[in-house]
């Protein structure tokens, strides 16, 4: 497992690299991203989208046609997020959708609150959907039941939300994830994670990024979360691909072995009838784009020829 981890590793510090603050200032001045008025939500320009779309194509190419491809919406069934364990373990990251189900009388109440500048959201109720926290969460309910021999591979892309407000351009609350997901035999799930990590790091290196693999843990909430995070590290369940944005090492991809967590939660069985294991290799499209802009400059047409050829030819 560790053999793959050194792949793509290079010396990280670049002399004269601008700080994150300097990079952010130039990025915003160029209009490639624009502020939305709230922290962690950015308006994306055509230039930024040109990059993320090219990265998407590269990720799709990693799949070599072995994956079913789906696109998922930015919201997910409340029940699915609960079953995924996300609400319990990442309580501070979830985003809930609330809707108005009131009467005319309650509508009048809402109007009064709007006029008075008081909390009108108190009149709303939680909906049966929440904001999607990870693209792969949509995959597991699709796999419920008995899997075909060899398991199932799904490529999934979607908008995600995590409530981590920050003014840093690297920390988006609303962002795109592109994942290669495997659900099936335990040994195959681990192989998928390791191969995906190695191939993902290689892809990012060929795009001219200085990327390193690092053992990681998810930001589980609270005191219970400390135990989960320790367990995840003990199991070497999560690796991140880390590349600089400005001078800040930033996780731009991750490779995750979830063992039987999702298989058990969503009643997924292998062809042989045991609880399926799963793994996912996830690319943060917005962060990959930021790492590329940081490495190669804000003028995409002047990026190194090799990088442009890989992305756009």
């Amino acid at each position: 497992m560790t053999a793959h981890v050194t792949l793509g590793t290079r010396e990280q510090a670049r002399d004269g690299a601008p700080t994150l603050e300097a990079f952010s200032r130039q990025l915003l001045a160029s209009g490639i991203l624009s502020p939305s008025g709230v922290d962690g939500v950015w308006v994306r320009s055509a230039t930024f989208e040109r990059i993320t779309e090219a990265v998407q194509r590269s990720v799709t190419a990693l799949g070599r046609g072995r994956y079913e491809t789906i696109q998922v919406p930015p919201v997910i069934a409340r029940a699915t997020l609960e079953r995924a364990g996300y609400v319990r373990s990442f309580t501070d990251l979830v985003g809930s959708v609330h809707v108005f189900r009131g009467s005319d009388q309650q509508h009048a109440d809402l109007l009064r609150r709007c006029d008075a500048g008081t909390d009108w959201a108190a009149v709303l109720d939680p909906a049966d959907v929440m904001l999607s926290s990870a693209a792969c969460h949509h995959v597991y309910p699709m796999c419920a039941g008995r899997l075909p021999p060899g398991g199932r591979r799904v490529e999934v892309r979607g908008e995600c939300f995590r409530h981590e407000p920050s003014s840093q351009v690297t920390r988006h609350r609303s962002f795109r994830m592109h994942e290669l997901v495997f659900v099936g035999e335990p040994v195959d799930a681990l192989t998928h994670r390791d191969a995906g990590l190695a191939e993902g790091l290689e892809l990012l290196s060929t795009l001219g990024l200085t990327v390193e693999a690092a053992a990681a843990n998810d930001p589980f909430f609270g005191r219970a979360g400390a135990i989960l995070a320790d367990g995840q590290r003990q199991d070497a369940a999560k690796y991140e691909g880390v590349a600089p944005v400005g001078d800040l090492p930033t996780a731009i991809m991750s490779a995750n072995y979830a063992a039987e967590h999702f298989g058990a939660a969503f009643a997924i069985a292998t062809a042989g009838g045991v609880v399926a294991h799963s793994s996912c290799v996830a690319f943060g499209l917005d962060r990959v784009a930021l790492a590329l802009l940081s490495a190669h400059g804000l003028d995409v047409d002047r990026w190194p020829v090799g990088v442009r050829q890989r992305l756009w030819q």
Partner: peptide, 26 residues
């Protein structure tokens, strides 16, 4: 992992103690 957390919380209640951060390990 979730069993572990339930055990941790139940032990704290049962013995009236609180596991400090450095002990919150598998």
């Amino acid at each position: 992992s979730f069993g572990n957390i339930s055990v941790m919380l139940a032990l704290e209640e049962s013995f009236n103690v609180e596991f400090p951060e450095p002990m919150l390990r598998r």
